[in-house]
Design a protein around this nucleic acid. Structure first.
Lengths: 221, 221
DNA sequence: GAGGGTCTGTAACTAAGTCACCGAGACCGT
DNA sequence: ACGGTCTCGGTGACTTAGTTACAGACCCTC
């Protein structure tokens, strides 16, 4: 292991009372899972509270007709609100969480989680903030799915997935699943974007050539 | 006031430790608001945790283009998860909460709320369960907006809004706002439903005449 | 009962999703 | 290298949903 302890990843945890902090450092389990693992899903309830140290978890939903939509991603340093909710509540969810990369996470057992919530104001703040972000985020997803044009949404998603890089590695089907749309629709939009010289498409790859143009489309939405 | 105390409405609260329970009964404020009041909205952060005693709060979102969608309703006996999130977290939301009927609610100040969370396992369970339900519910909304046919969604919503009654008091625009659709689309669908003899339409009223037919449409979705 | 506002109906059009099918490229084993 | 198979991308024809524009019906108030 490195000399830095995992708790360094979570600033809110630094403010915990000494005895709780010590307990956290010792009593918790670090889990590692390969890319593609199913972290949770319908009929697969989580048994502990998860804090993601490295990697990304993609949370998505599949309709009976087979169409998919990505709801959100959990990044390193975040907790999975859904897991938390199901840990404390009794509700079943129908979404599933997939490891998009190899992941490393801290699993806090239910009992310790409960104790942390009870004793630490900072930990409560941390958990509730995660909830708050998630719900706000879901509101935005609903607004986009309900009201935003598909070309704008696609441009937005391409810029998001590209990050600092020039290309997005994803099939048209993958992009359709991101947006809850259909493959043919994405193909058509990408063809149109390519015709305008904003990007180039190759098998499984979208190479962005005119980032400002895409950004302008998103802006003028 | 009636002889029954408001705490009777919330079974989870009955299990609180005596001293906390006593504090709850005395230190909290009961607020009453008329129909149509805006409980919260963009740039209007809540100052206390709300437990709804009577009435309904409609939580909705409006796009820049003016189209609206109803996200969920808070019923008597429930807490508003969003309010809670924003109370504990720091995130701003863009949704707004409207009193659909006159409402009576208990306002628990932030400090007492924090104390309740810290001391009572049952209260934590209550709050987290509310979160859990809400998130699960939002997932279903996303799935329906993204993948469900508008006729199915309308039939479903009509049955939901009608409850045990035979009629729904709502304009076509109101129904469009429920589903995040457009007024003309609703008019067309209602006309088609009426043609099939499933309902009758009058100004501001939809009278359901063949409930099983509507239910069948929803079922075969 | 005139005039204003609200609500509903409808036609023509655009955008998005569906269905069916085909062909190009990648992969794999022999 | 060859053929078989699979995934991925492209396309046309069609259906469904949302948009634009406008007109008429109803309702309320003065």
């Amino acid at each position: 292991m490195s000399s830095k302890h995992w708790t360094d990843t979570f600033p809110p945890l630094q403010k915990l009372p000494q005895e709780i902090f010590a307990q956290l450092r010792q009593a918790t389990l670090i889990v590692e899972l390969p890319e593609g693992s199913r972290i949770f899903g319908p009929g697969q309830a989580p048994e502990s509270f998860l804090l993601l140290l490295t990697g990304t978890i993609r949370v998505q939903q599949t309709s009976e007709s087979g169409r998919e939509i990505v709801l959100y991603r959990v990044q390193a340093g975040e907790s999975c609100a859904l897991t938390t909710a199901c840990l404390m509540g009794y509700e079943e969810y129908q979404a599933e969480g997939i490891a998009e990369t190899p992941i490393r996470a801290v699993a806090i057992p239910r009992a310790l989680f409960d104790q942390l919530i009870a004793t630490s104001r900072e930990f409560r703040q941390f958990v509730f903030t995660a909830f708050s972000r998630r719900i706000t985020n879901l509101f935005r997803v609903i607004e986009e799915v309900a009201f935003e044009r598909i070309d704008v949404r696609l441009a937005q998603k391409l810029l998001e997935l590209a990050g600092a890089k020039q290309q997005v590695v994803a099939t048209h089907q993958d992009l359709a699943n991101e947006l809850g749309s259909a493959r043919e629709v994405i193909t058509r939009q990408l063809t149109e974007f390519a015709r305008r010289g904003w990007l180039r498409v190759a098998r499984g790859i979208v190479e962005i050539t005119d980032r400002p143009a895409l950004a302008r489309l998103v802006q003028r939405s």
